[in-house]
Computed example of a mutant assay.
Amino acid sequence: MRRLLLAVPVAALLVVAVVVLATEYVVARPSRRAKDVAYVPVNAPDVDKKRHLLDVYSPRKSAPHAAGFPVVLFIHGGSWTSGNKNLYTFIGRRLAKQGVVAVVINYRLAPAVHVPEQAADCARALAWTVQNISQYGGDPARVFVMGHSAGGGLAALLATDDELLAAHGLPHNPVRGAILDDPAGLDMYSYLREMKYSNDEQYLVPFGNDPTVWKQLSAIYKIRPGLPPFIFYLGGETYPSISGSSGRFRDKLKASGQAPLYTIMPGRHHIPMVLQLYWQHNLIYQGLLKFVGA
């Protein structure tokens, strides 16, 4: 009897694994993946051969427009200290299946580097995308940025910090819009000054001790008229710091003349806000496809 009881969970897990693999196969067929493409020259003095890489997911079908498909550059989260593009193949596959060229990137992590270097990495990946994405069927004039958690904060910087982009080969900001999925780090200046949650000191590892840098890396202080449009998705049960900073970001956008799309998903916690992207027809993809014109 004990053996039978042990076999039931194992059998169930095997069934789930088979279903997941079968689903991935079906989703993968309509797309192509170019894996581990270097976006920093190999002779650059600061090149990291494991982290300065990205994957491109392209639809196999022909683009409806001669210029190509819209492009979404996705930046993973992980508290600025962890994460890997290989965990997010499902996002690349599902975007490609729905007529979007997806660029899923790695960037260097703390404590090896700090957030200024991470933001620079994201800017370099964006510059590579604009310069090369036409080779993968993407339209360089329709590039959008997307991020979850820490990646959402970095994506917001790409959409707002023209000086950051100009320092890395983009004299004009090419971002056509930003999709922020439960974003963290939109206002690290206020967050790190207040230090009102337990273990907040951990974020001094990626951000350092200089309040000037905290403000420089907080996209909320770069809001001004004329920014590309934003679309927000917030978990109804996410961290108060994320819901609070996102609400303030939205209000400042409104004051600047932009009314961003802002959706709260009841009952959703922080991690499920990205895990739900495994399902092709979820609410985020529905809004994203309209947003990018796919």
Rank of each mutant, 00 (worst) to 15 (best):
R2E: 09
A11S: 12
L14M: 12
V16W: 14
A17K: 06
V19Q: 10
L21P: 03
R29E: 08
R29G: 01
A34M: 15
K35I: 15
Y39P: 00
P41N: 10
N43C: 02
A44G: 00
D46L: 05
D48W: 02
H52F: 03
H52G: 01
H52D: 08
L54C: 07
L54F: 06
D55C: 04
V56F: 05
P64S: 06
P64Y: 10
H65C: 01
A67S: 10
G68H: 12
V71F: 04
F74C: 09
F74N: 11
G77C: 12
T81M: 10
S82L: 13
G83E: 06
K85M: 13
K85E: 12
T89M: 15
F90M: 03
G92K: 06
L95M: 12
A96Q: 01
A96K: 01
G99P: 05
V100K: 00
V103W: 00
V103A: 00
V104G: 09
I105V: 15
I105T: 08
Y107F: 12
L109W: 03
A112L: 08
H114I: 02
V115G: 08
P116L: 15
A119F: 04
A123K: 06
A125R: 01
L126N: 09
A127G: 02
Q131T: 07
Q131R: 14
I133K: 09
S134Q: 14
V143M: 08
V143S: 13
V143Q: 15
F144D: 06
V145E: 12
G151Q: 06
A155Y: 02
A156T: 08
L157Q: 14
A159N: 03
D161Q: 14
E163Q: 15
L165G: 01
N173Y: 03
N173K: 09
A178Y: 06
L180G: 04
D181C: 05
A184I: 09
L186A: 11
M188W: 07
Y189I: 06
Y191H: 14
L192V: 12
R193A: 08
N199P: 04
Y203W: 05
Y203F: 13
Y203D: 01
Y203V: 00
P206S: 14
F207D: 04
D210R: 15
P211S: 09
T212A: 15
V213S: 11
K222L: 12
I223S: 07
G226I: 13
F230Q: 02
F230N: 02
F232G: 11
L234I: 14
T238F: 09
P240C: 05
S241F: 09
I242T: 05
G244S: 11
G244T: 13
S245H: 04
S246V: 01
G247W: 07
R248Y: 13
R250K: 14
L253Y: 02
A255R: 10
G257V: 02
G257L: 06
Y262H: 11
T263W: 13
T263K: 13
G267L: 12
H270G: 11
V274W: 00
V274R: 00
L275K: 05
Q276N: 02
L277I: 08
L277D: 08
Y278V: 05
N282P: 03
I284H: 02
I284W: 00
Q286L: 15
V292F: 07
